[in-house]
Design a protein around this nucleic acid. Sequence first.
DNA 1: AAAAAAG
Length: 507
Amino acid sequence: MTTFSDLGLSQKVLSAVTDAGYTIPTPIQAGAIPPALQRRDILGIAQTGTGKTASFVLPMLTLLEKGRARARMPRTLILEPTRELAAQVAENFEKYGKNHKLNIALLIGGVSFDEQDRKLERGADVLICTPGRLLDHCERGKLLMTGVEILVIDEADRMLDMGFIPDIERIAKLIPFTRQTLFFSATMPPEIQKLADRFLQNPERVEVSVRSSTATTVTQRFVATHSKDYEKRAVLRDLIQKQEELKNAIIFCNRKLDVADLFRSLSRHGFSVGALHGDMDQSSRTKMLASFKDGNIQLLVASDVAARGLDIPDVSHVFNFDVPIHAEDYVHRIGRTGRAGRSGAAFTLVSKRDTKFADAIEKLIDKKIEWLNGDLSALPAPMESHDSGRSERGGRDGKRGGRRNDRDRDHAPRPVSSHKSDIKSDDISTDQEPVTAKAESVRPERKADTKPQNAGRHSNRPAPQPHPANDDNRDRRNRYRRDHDDGPTPIGFGDDIPAFMLIAGKA
DNA sequence: AAAAAAG
């Protein structure tokens, strides 16, 4: 059997790999490292979770042992589609490069230029970048690309999705033709193949299929739901509380606004939850990801920024609050669980309007996904719509009578003092076992416990969205939440809730 | 029906 010591890596690299506890390379590592060390171009077709990052980091470290960096002239350049991914690659360089004295510069957007400038001035061996910030540095004349010996283009298919290809082409033009290029992509659509043909010279093609492993270790289920957000939230909470072995989970939404809404809802319900999407400021993103990795936060509500590439080990569950519009995203999302041979579970909430996308997913993965509790035709009657709930209650007296009825109906609202009243196991599942005990493993008992995570509410929370256009909707949303989510009545109004909050948006 | 990335 092949071990790392058979691949031709330097002693410094090998000892770091051993210290990290690895002896056997993954298929992509075994296939890509030897030709990379011989300065061959690589076309690597592999998803995340296959050990792809180490397959370029380790040979690069070995090759970098010859020579030294000069100011403003990086020797190697790695392009990543997202900031988190770039940061992760940087961590890999720290880990496996601990026996080297290499200067590594992480050039990503959303943070200040100062420290990045200093590192470039000092001379960087390795540049790890998102395309926009790299071009920014180039335009400011801080960077000479003529010394780059190795170019890595990671997640090329995702770069394509995100419209980065023109940027990538501009960057590639700045780098000498004699460079070595390592090119990675999870899929090979024609555009990517064309790109690879242009960028690579006589590449070694290394392909790793990961499909069989996800298919066997991840339990996938569709969960029928009505399409209203408050109903989906109730279904989701119920689903989460019924999981017996939920260590941690990522919950995907299609839109950033929905990430923020669902995050608020879950945290108001006392879940240990964080949020991650691209409109949050960079320090919140970093902190959030770190506390999820550390286990300080159990649930992470995220946009597709977290769908690909992020190295979060041991995610036991993935929940798709929204069915992804592009079936490929489904594969990437559920690829967050069941990694490295572990078992995982992936649940996707599907409403009538999503059937087209759900069908597309089954077609892509060439597999029927079972429904958890019957398909859409077996769905119980929808909850009362919020308008009828409100008119029943009438006027401004929103706290009594009608409100309790609401709770019974949609098992969502509850007084802050009682935790258990809203946990019901009807409707959604055939499992009639009481869920309270399990729920407590998921939900902190005391409100105080949730504070540290959601605390610094300014730092951990999704950044406020300052679009003036949203002001219009804010009142409507507040009222909506109060009526249908669970939320206590808006704080500070007492019984004097302004009348407009109760009538706004009726049209 | 979206998200991501440069400000």
